[in-house]
Write a protein that binds this DNA or RNA. Sequence first.
DNA 1: TAAGTGTACTAAGACGTTTAATACACTTGA
DNA 2: TCAAGTGTATTAAACGTCTTAGTACACTTA
Lengths: 128, 128
Amino acid sequence: MIVIDYRDKRPLYEQVAEKIAHLIICGVLESNAKLPSVRSLAVDLSVNPNTIQRAYAQLEQDGYIYTVVGRGNYVTDSQEWKSGRLQEVSDELRDALRNARDAGLSREEALDLANEIYQEKKEGSAND
Amino acid sequence: MIVIDYRDKRPLYEQVAEKIAHLIICGVLESNAKLPSVRSLAVDLSVNPNTIQRAYAQLEQDGYIYTVVGRGNYVTDSQEWKSGRLQEVSDELRDALRNARDAGLSREEALDLANEIYQEKKEGSAND
DNA sequence: TAAGTGTACTAAGACGTTTAATACACTTGA
DNA sequence: TCAAGTGTATTAAACGTCTTAGTACACTTA
């Protein structure tokens, strides 16, 4: 389900959280799906349970999962985080466009690139 | 010339390098302009000379400055790094577009955003 | 009740960042 | 020539974060 990249300089918990978030965003993990327990995922990835717990805590703070004490962690309904996610990627796109413009990329090249991406196949998606 | 943001979690040397790179990219620091010495900038920013040296080392590795031992550090000709910079921002833009598309931003919204950015005034630029 | 769950806490080690102090080779200008 | 300024290199220490390890507790389920 998840593979850790030890060349990645970021903290393990951040890497784990990002990979799970990606699975949720892409729809691989559906709403209300049950995530692996802190202990079992720790064994799977050969890391400490504390590290997984911290990753789950971050995912909960970001709104991607919710926790039921004594039961486990579950994927949040996509309505809960989709609008925030859209705002986030829009801001990123805005910054990237400004940087591209300032670095000398022409408007035509930027628009061409956008059209190219939008006729690409959406990658890693489970539905739509 | 540079102000350090201590709320920024990244290393000081990285922050300093980025701010100087920005000044170079925007044209505030022209080609072959002399940068402050390691020691004087360290005093200015109230940090250790080692920190500035590390920032300069990174800038040199990225091609933004060059060093003459015993003389100082100087801004590289823009031809040296402009193509690499263009490649960099293009890749960033590509990623941002993919994320935006996958998060549900429509093609029209993306194109509108691009046109909006391109009719904005270019910020912080010294020439053109 | 037993097993599995999330949560909390402390301790220790590893690692990177930053500071501090020092030393050396080089270039410049008086 | 020589003093001052330059980049560079090294070592040591302090500090914070990440990670592991071990333990404990409250909760839920079967």
